[in-house]
């Protein structure tokens, strides 16, 4: 049984763990947008480094993050490989008969820096609270109730359904000996999937009845006790100021200034 464990380390203690969830989500979204909008590769590098610092502060084990990174990394790697060859521009060098362009390399670096930063930021944002709290945060942000309910139900029942699926699979495979042609196997698999769907449908019906019995009338309210403290405000300010600073650096051309001063 694999578990959905993005909140596996929600019990740790760090400045992000005791950050008010609403403020945390908002601040990090702001930071993410801010980074996505950056174009200057040097500032992106600064942003990337600051992201890593944020991850370190959050105390989420790096190994945990790296494991979850596999697929994203693969995707970025593909981009990295393709872009330098395909983006037209001044040739930097040749690999065999393929020309690699300057602008291609720059673009690839920019894209991957952005992607990695955004991916990394997900962890100090989401892995530092229980997923349930995240759902409540969504509820708080006036995300349409239906959507929040759906996320909440998916989270609640994904294991129940996958357990049911695995149980059926096991019972079928324990009885299935002999015939093992591919078509036969496909036939069985489609049967199991169908059965799981029917079961889920029936369960849905039973849950609906259980909800009605306890006075469900279309909206699913919960109590939440979010409270902003002074510390939260300070953390908020730091992240917001940093998000803005990244763009200030670009706009005021501070980095270029340094070069100009050096050359003088």
């Amino acid at each position: 049984m694999t578990h959905f464990d993005i909140d596996k380390y929600a019990y740790l203690k760090s400045p992000f763990h005791n950050f008010d969830p609403r403020a945390k989500v908002l601040c990090f979204l702001l930071l993410i947008f801010s980074i996505v909008l950056l174009n200057d590769i040097r500032v992106l590098l600064i942003a990337f480094i600051s992201t890593i610092i944020l991850v370190l502060i959050s105390k989420i084990p790096l190994l945990f993050i790296l494991k979850r990174f596999k697929w994203v990394a693969l995707f970025i790697f593909a981009v990295l490989v393709v872009l330098p060859f395909t983006v037209p521009g001044e040739n930097a060098f040749y690999i065999g008969f393929l020309s690699v362009s300057h602008s291609g390399i720059l673009l690839a670096t920019r894209v991957s820096l952005k992607a990695f930063s955004v991916m990394l930021l997900i962890f100090p944002m989401l892995s530092t609270m229980k997923f349930v709290i995240f759902i409540k945060t969504l509820e708080h942000f006036k995300i349409p109730d239906k959507l929040v309910q759906m996320i909440s139900f998916i989270y609640r029942y994904i294991f129940v359904v996958s357990n049911e699926f695995q149980r059926t699979l096991r019972s079928v495979s324990s009885r299935n000996v002999g015939k093992k042609t591919r078509i036969f196997r496909h036939h069985i698999l489609s049967n199991i999937i169908g059965m799981t769907l029917v079961r889920s449908y029936e369960r849905g019906e039973r849950i609906r009845i259980a909800m009605l019995s306890r006075g469900y009338n279309g909206n699913m309210k919960t109590l939440n006790s979010f409270r902003m403290t002074k510390k939260d405000l300070i953390k908020c300010s730091i992240i917001i100021i940093w998000s803005i600073s990244l763009h200030v650096i670009v706009l005021t051309k501070i980095l270029d200034l340094a070069r100009v001063v050096n050359s003088v």
């Binding site: 139900f153 009845i209 259980a210 306890r214 469900y216 109590l223």
Partner: peptide, 26 residues
């Protein structure tokens, strides 16, 4: 009040608190 046979049908919220609070809130 009805308590159904399968607790996975009865407990549809993500935390015990929310589940027990569901009726009173409604």
């Amino acid at each position: 009040g009805v308590v159904f046979q399968d607790p996975d049908d009865q407990l549809f919220m993500s935390t015990v608190f929310d589940d027990v609070a569901f009726g009173p809130i409604n």
